[in-house]
Simulated scan of single mutants.
Amino acid sequence: MKEFERKQLLERANREAATIGADIPDVIDVQGEEVELRDFVFEIKRRDTVPEGEKERVETAKRNLRRERLQRLQKIEDNEVSFEEGEKLVESIIGIDRALNALEQLRPKDLEQEEKMQEAADKKRWMNFLKQALGRDDASSKRRGGRP
Results as ranks from 00 to 15, higher is better:
residue 69 R to L: 04
residue 74 Q to D: 11
residue 110 D to Q: 09
residue 103 L to E: 01
residue 101 N to K: 02
residue 88 K to V: 10
residue 98 R to V: 01
residue 53 G to V: 10
residue 118 Q to N: 14
residue 69 R to W: 04
residue 60 T to G: 05
residue 86 G to M: 07
residue 118 Q to F: 11
residue 54 E to G: 05
residue 91 E to G: 11
residue 104 E to A: 11
residue 101 N to L: 05
residue 127 M to I: 15
residue 98 R to S: 05
residue 84 E to T: 14
residue 114 E to A: 08
residue 72 R to P: 00
residue 95 G to M: 07
residue 107 R to L: 11
residue 88 K to S: 15
residue 119 E to P: 00
residue 85 E to Q: 14
residue 46 R to F: 09
residue 87 E to T: 05
residue 108 P to W: 10
residue 54 E to F: 10
residue 56 E to N: 07
residue 53 G to N: 13
residue 131 K to G: 08
residue 95 G to R: 06
residue 66 R to V: 02
residue 48 D to A: 09
residue 51 P to Q: 05
residue 82 S to M: 08
residue 122 D to G: 10
residue 47 R to W: 06
residue 106 L to E: 02
residue 115 E to G: 03
residue 79 N to I: 04
residue 102 A to T: 13
residue 77 E to G: 13
residue 72 R to S: 06
residue 69 R to I: 00
residue 51 P to Y: 12
residue 63 R to H: 03
residue 114 E to S: 08
residue 100 L to P: 08
residue 111 L to R: 08
residue 57 R to H: 03
residue 112 E to V: 11
residue 105 Q to Y: 04
residue 121 A to L: 06
residue 130 L to W: 09
residue 90 V to D: 01
residue 95 G to K: 08
residue 114 E to G: 05
residue 84 E to S: 11
residue 99 A to K: 13
residue 104 E to T: 03
residue 102 A to Y: 06
residue 119 E to I: 02
residue 69 R to N: 00
residue 51 P to H: 07
residue 125 R to T: 00
residue 49 T to H: 10
residue 111 L to K: 10
residue 84 E to V: 13
residue 94 I to K: 04
residue 64 N to M: 04
residue 103 L to Y: 04
residue 103 L to S: 07
residue 76 I to A: 02
residue 117 M to I: 15
residue 82 S to C: 09
residue 97 D to E: 15
residue 63 R to S: 02
residue 109 K to V: 10
residue 79 N to Y: 05
residue 106 L to R: 08
residue 89 L to A: 04
residue 48 D to M: 13
residue 121 A to H: 13
residue 118 Q to K: 13
residue 97 D to Q: 15
residue 55 K to E: 14
residue 51 P to D: 07
residue 75 K to P: 05
residue 75 K to Y: 04
residue 93 I to F: 06
residue 66 R to M: 00
residue 99 A to I: 13
residue 109 K to H: 11
residue 58 V to D: 02
residue 56 E to W: 07
residue 110 D to C: 03
residue 120 A to P: 03
residue 47 R to A: 04
residue 114 E to P: 02
residue 74 Q to L: 09
residue 128 N to K: 11
residue 80 E to K: 15
residue 79 N to Q: 10
residue 70 L to M: 11
residue 124 K to L: 15
residue 61 A to L: 15
residue 93 I to N: 01
